[in-house]
Design a protein around this nucleic acid. Sequence first.
DNA 1: GAAAAATATTGAACGATGTTCAAAATAATT
DNA 2: AATTATTTTGAACATCGTTCAATATTTTTC
Lengths: 202, 202
Amino acid sequence: MGRREDKREDLKARLLEAARDRIERDGVANLRARDVTQDAGCALGGLYSAYTDLNDLIIHVNSTTLKALEQSLALAGVKDRSPTDRLRNLGQGYLKFAMANRNLWKALFEHALPADTPSPQWHLDEHLFLLSIIAEPLRELQPEMSDEDRAVRARTLFGAVHGIISITLEARFVGLPPERLERELDEIIIMIAAGAAVMRRD
Amino acid sequence: MGRREDKREDLKARLLEAARDRIERDGVANLRARDVTQDAGCALGGLYSAYTDLNDLIIHVNSTTLKALEQSLALAGVKDRSPTDRLRNLGQGYLKFAMANRNLWKALFEHALPADTPSPQWHLDEHLFLLSIIAEPLRELQPEMSDEDRAVRARTLFGAVHGIISITLEARFVGLPPERLERELDEIIIMIAAGAAVMRRD
DNA sequence: GAAAAATATTGAACGATGTTCAAAATAATT
DNA sequence: AATTATTTTGAACATCGTTCAATATTTTTC
C-alpha cells in the first residue's frame, strides 16, 4: 500500500501551506523552523524529512508564488493587441501582484541563500519562464532581433520594472500613492517600448 | 584630558574598518559580531559600547559606501554637457561602482533590518541625496516639471537602473558579459531620456 | 495474523549567533 | 594617593537551524 507516500505528501503539503502563511503574514525573514513545524502539526525534525532544509522549503513556497504570478500575468498579457499594450499590461499585472502579495513577492528576491548552495536548476528555470513571457511581445516589437538578444533585453526590461516597483514598495524611501506608481511604471514602459520600436528602423 | 573620547573614537573607527573589510570580502550576510570585534582588537561586548547594534555598525559602513559612491558619481556627472549624456554617465558610473565594490554595494540594499527598527533619518537622507544627483539632469530635460514630480521621476529612473544592474550582478540568472550589460543599461537610459525629451513637447 | 524488518517521526542535544550585564580594569577627579 | 566615574571585558543567556539516537509506525515475511 502507498500509505507511506501519502503521509509523506501530506506532511510536505502541510509544511508548505504553513510556511506560505507565515511568510505572507510576517515576511520570509521571520520564518522560523519551530513555528512552521508547529503550525503543520509535526515535530521540529519533521521538516528535515520532508525538505532538505528550511531554505528548500522556502524555495518551494517561492515556486508556488511564481506559478501564481505567471497565472496573473497570463491573464494580463493577452487582452490587448499591440505589443506595447501587452507590455504595459504585463507591467501593471506585475505591480498588482506585488502589491497584493507583498511578502510572498519579496520572498522571491530577498531570500539570499548561502553561496555554497545556489538555487536548484528547476527553480532557476521557473524564473526564466517568467522572462519568456516578457520576451514574447518584444518579438513583435523587434522581429529582427536574435533570440539571444531578445532574452537579454527581456531580462533588462524585467530588471527595470522590478527595480521601479521594489524601490517604492520597499519603503526605503517615502512611499508613493499606488496610482502614482502605476503611472510612473506605465510611462517608463511606454518609453522603452517606443525606443525599441524606433530602433527597428535603424 | 579628552583621552576618553579619543579612545572611543578610535574604537569606533577600528570597528568600522573591520566591518567594512569583512563585508567587502564575505558579504554582509556573513558578517559576525565575533569576527569584527576580534579584527578590531576588542572584546565582544565592545561593539555594543561603540554602536547600538550590529545593524547600527552596518548602517555606518553603508554610509561610507554611499559617500564613496557619491564621489564616483560626482566625477561621472559633470564631464559632458547634454543632460542625456550626463544621465548616461551617471548610469555607467553607477554600474562601474557596483561592479568594483559588489559586496559593499549589495549591502546598501540587501541589508534587511528588523521591521520595528527602521533606518535612522540621517541615513535615509543620504539615500535621498543620491537621488538628487539624478534629478539634476532631469531638470534640464523637463524644465516644466514640478520639483516633486521630478523627485518621483528620479526615483523611478534610479529604480530602473538599479534593477537592471541588480538582476544581472545577483547572478540569479545567467551572467552577462560586462560590456553587454553596459550597452543594455546605456540603451535603456537613452530611451528614457528620449522619452522624457519627447514629453516636453506635449 | 504475528513476528521481523524497514521506515518514519520525535524531540533532546549541539553548535552558532546576537545581545546583555555584573565584575574587573582603567581613567578622571578630588 | 584615594576616591569616584567610566569603560572594557567575556561568561552567560536566549534564540536560531540542524542533527541523530531512540521511539513509534508501517510494511513485509512466513
